[in-house]
Nucleic acid binder design. Structure first.
Lengths: 146, 146
DNA sequence: TTAAGTGCAAAATCTTTGCAAATGT
DNA sequence: ACATTTGCAAAGATTTTGCACTTAA
């Protein structure tokens, strides 16, 4: 059976990207999280494994290639998550509910909740749509008494 | 019949805010637009009628009082729109589709399109939800040939 | 070997903070 | 007169750009 690590490296090769340490580490971090990860958090976890500027560039490249996608949380901070299969450089499929916890700031991709089809007024052509909820996630509602 | 101008000034008084020139101008600008207005745009239009810092503070105060609400566009830039009646310091009602034109960057509040009720997975309690579409608005699709 | 990728320094933005002067009531 | 609000200066934070050095293929 193929190792997870190899799958991630393969993602790079498939997209014509070199297999570098900073890139592999970003993929490793993202693959182990159950929610989208913010730029600041990534920066912290990367530590000295990548310069801040390098991280910006990696995230940008990955997004362009369709390896990750960006979700903005309630404060407008960028959060990143690995794309599911079906995303490519030209087409992102990310049409599910994003849940942003106001306590821990995590952004969950709730694939189970699809965005309902909506009818836009004439003249407005929708190319992309996102549904984002803000509230308390399970962990935070359990561990908080307000 | 009461003048529009007075209505705006009244908004300030009702919220215990002083009727200052910069504040009136912000209200005036917002009241004349059919879409939410970005911070950068406001800054430009205000010109020398308010310092950049003053604008930040006005927008923050207005948002806290429930006079305006903030909508983030696809890039995470803050856009502001006057609240409809029914918003207060403690409760914002803004649950309609926001349409962000990728060409002119305008953010339209499409009150006609309400956010469908959705069922969140157990453990996630939703306090606020937003639906944002990105695409081309009527003006831009008419005036562009791509 | 050599194109792609990284790290560092520095610029450009964007946002916040502190405080004295100005303003509305 | 007095609490609010503003403007300016300066600090912080975030993001971008340029370029020489390093590294994967």
């Amino acid at each position: 059976m193929e190792k997870q690590e190899d799958k991630l490296a393969e993602l790079l090769v498939q997209n014509g990207l070199k297999r570098t340490l900073p890139r592999l580490k970003v993929l490793d971090i993202l693959s182990k999280r159950d929610s989208a990860t913010s730029q600041p958090f990534l920066e912290k976890v990367m530590g000295s494994d990548a310069d801040r500027v390098t991280l910006y560039r990696i995230l940008q490249t990955f997004e362009e290639k369709g390896i990750i996608h960006k979700v903005l949380d309630g404060q407008g901070t960028a959060n990143y998550a690995l794309c599911t299969t079906g995303c490519s450089q030209h087409e992102h499929h990310d049409e599910h509910l994003h849940f942003n916890c106001r306590n821990c700031q995590r952004v969950y991709c709730l694939d189970a909740v699809r965005i309902p089809r909506i009818k836009t007024p004439p003249g407005f052509s929708v190319e992309n749509i996102s549904l984002t909820a803000v509230g308390l996630c399970s962990y935070c509602s359990d561990n908080k008494s307000e």
